[in-house]
């Protein structure tokens, strides 16, 4: 456990040791706010909720989260520090989790820094803060899902650009599988069970459900198991390299 913490701390301070953290946070805040106010029509809607704000999170995460995740393992492989890390007395799962949690908490910090909009909507009107809190939790869980995918992909390559592109593609599939256009394509010929399975794999479907203010246990299980599966694959990939 102490090893996990040591790796977690190193990774998290690592983000802030380079301009990456600040660039990321600034772009994230700038993008969320401009989407909310210009594309989302936050003022024009004249309603005291943050759906205009949260609606864009899956699409922002699609590009921003892979940018955090791409370096997780690819950078260590490229610079050779992976040899140092994996010969320290650290269980592999602790290294995988330590890195993942550091990235997740970092994404959480960026997300938490959007709090002025929560204050704003409370100042302007009387929103349902339970729904907003649930949406924040859902957004954070979704970020975790994207990150787990990105961490696993990053373990496959020592090229960060490849890690980024492949992660975006996989995350894109996980996101759009809930869009009506995609589901319509399957509805014509595929059995209903398959269509609902595809829909249930979507981040969008899950996030929409949570955004309505209800954190269903099944949604927690969905994100939990998604993260677990991708991180397990991540650990297996790292371990396979030993036998190569």
């Amino acid at each position: 456990m102490s090893e996990l913490l040591a790796i977690f701390r190193r990774e998290l301070t690592g983000y802030f040791a380079t301009p990456l953290a600040y660039v990321f946070i600034v772009i994230f805040l700038f993008a969320t706010m401009s989407f909310t106010f210009y594309l989302g029509g936050f003022y024009e809607a004249r309603s005291a909720n943050l759906s205009a704000f949260f609606n864009f999170h899956p699409w922002l995460y699609l590009f921003l989260i892979p940018a955090i995740a791409m370096r997780l393992w690819a950078e260590e492989r490229k610079s050779g520090t992976i040899e140092l890390l994996l010969t320290l007395p650290v269980p592999l799962w602790a290294a995988v989790l330590g890195k993942f949690f550091a990235a997740w908490i970092f994404a959480g910090i960026a997300l938490a820094l959007t709090f002025p909009i929560w204050l704003t909507v409370n100042y302007l009107g009387d929103p349902d803060n339970g729904v907003i809190l649930a949406s924040y939790v859902g957004s954070f869980l979704m970020a975790g899902g994207f990150l787990a995918i990105g961490s696993c992909v990053s373990a496959m390559t020592q090229n960060q650009v490849i890690a980024f592109v492949v992660t975006v593609v996989i995350c894109f599939l996980f996101t759009v599988s809930g869009l009506p256009q995609v589901l319509d394509f399957f509805k014509g010929w595929a059995p209903q069970a398959l269509v609902s399975t595809i829909a249930s794999f979507s981040f969008l479907t899950r996030f929409e459900a949570i955004k309505s203010g209800v954190i269903d246990f099944r949604d927690l299980v969905y994100f939990g198991s998604l993260i677990w599966v991708w991180l397990t694959a991540n650990a297996v990939l790292i371990d396979m390299r030993k036998a190569a």
Binding site: S79, G80, L84
Partner: peptide, 11 residues
């Protein structure tokens, strides 16, 4: 000490 003495460059 691995070959090339790898270390985290930003630390």
């Amino acid at each position: 000490l691995p070959e090339g003495a790898p270390a985290y460059p930003d630390m």
